[in-house]
């Protein structure tokens, strides 16, 4: 499944990610990021807070789409019947594989969890500017994903005119692309770190070699956070990580007031 992973993680995937700096532009303007060492500190500080949260939600959303019945068994006794029915079906190619056709009970359970995940993620984003950016990126990803990897899974997503949060759509898309939960979490971490790093390249004029070396140095931590995030798949959405960064919220709001900016967020 490596090619699908690379395809979805690629900055060239037409989901509009390049328009967002995930807070880097605001940090540069505030004078907080101006060198490679402050950039490294910024990337790691956000990776272990907002990065972990979005990766956990991507993993949990993947799980809800790929295993719609089992993901709710603990939280909703009504879903346990559906879980049993799901387990009774002949070994469907669920594990990291294509999503099987879903029964009505499973669909109901899966959409209920995805709705909860979207609301729980909303409660983890105090900044309205961050929420808007996340929903816009979710809508853009969903448009592209439906064309690239058509499937039933997208029907489980909540219907919202302003879009579903990006991490939730990412999880469902990864399931549709045949990727695993861990891969969904990894893409979430990787996209955040590389998105911020390439914004830094454009804003601060670093050498591309320096930026790539820094990203290579951070690869192990990116993997580790993704692995930690994956462990949350299938849990009650309320119990997912909720680490936040005060400056992420504050600077996203400051950034939203600027009349001229290079990035949307």
């Amino acid at each position: 499944m490596t090619s699908a992973l690379l395809l979805l993680a690629d900055g060239r995937f037409p989901a509009g990610g390049h328009a967002h700096s995930s807070g880097l532009e605001a940090a540069v303007a505030a004078g907080r990021v101006s060198s490679l060492s402050t950039l490294e500190s910024f990337l790691l500080g956000r990776l272990y807070t907002t990065g972990l949260v979005t990766a956990a939600f991507a993993a949990a959303s993947h799980h809800a789409a790929a295993h719609p019945a089992t993901s709710t068994a603990a939280a909703h006794p009504a879903a346990q019947g559906a879980a049993a029915a799901h387990l009774a079906t002949p070994s469907g190619a669920v594990e990291g594989g294509s999503v099987p056709r879903l029964g009505d009970m499973e669909c109901a359970a899966g959409s209920e969890v995805l709705l909860q995940l979207d609301e729980e993620l909303e409660a983890r984003m105090a900044s309205p500017a961050t929420r808007v950016a996340s929903r816009k990126q979710g809508a853009a990803l969903l448009r592209a994903a439906k064309m690239v990897w058509p499937g039933d899974g997208y029907g489980l997503l909540p219907q919202r005119r302003d879009g579903v949060h990006h991490a939730v759509v990412l999880g469902v898309t990864a399931a549709a692309a045949g990727l695993s939960c861990a891969e969904a979490a990894l893409i979430a971490c990787y996209s955040q770190v590389t998105g911020q790093a390439s914004a830094a390249l454009r804003l601060l004029g670093f050498s591309p070699y320096d930026i790539q070396r820094l990203l290579a140095q951070l690869a192990g931590q990116c993997d580790a956070v993704a692995m930690a995030a994956t462990a949350h798949a299938g849990k009650d959405p309320a119990e997912l990580p909720m680490f936040s960064s005060p400056l992420a919220d504050i600077s996203a709001e400051l950034h939203a007031t600027w009349e001229v900016r290079l990035f949307a967020s």
């Binding site: 907080r32 500190s41 910024f42 500080g45 931590q221 960064s245 005060p246 400056l247």
Partner: peptide, 12 residues
């Protein structure tokens, strides 16, 4: 135990 909490990404 927290990673770069005092840095520009979290508390600056």
């Amino acid at each position: 135990s927290a990673v770069h909490w005092a840095g520009p990404g979290v508390l600056g």
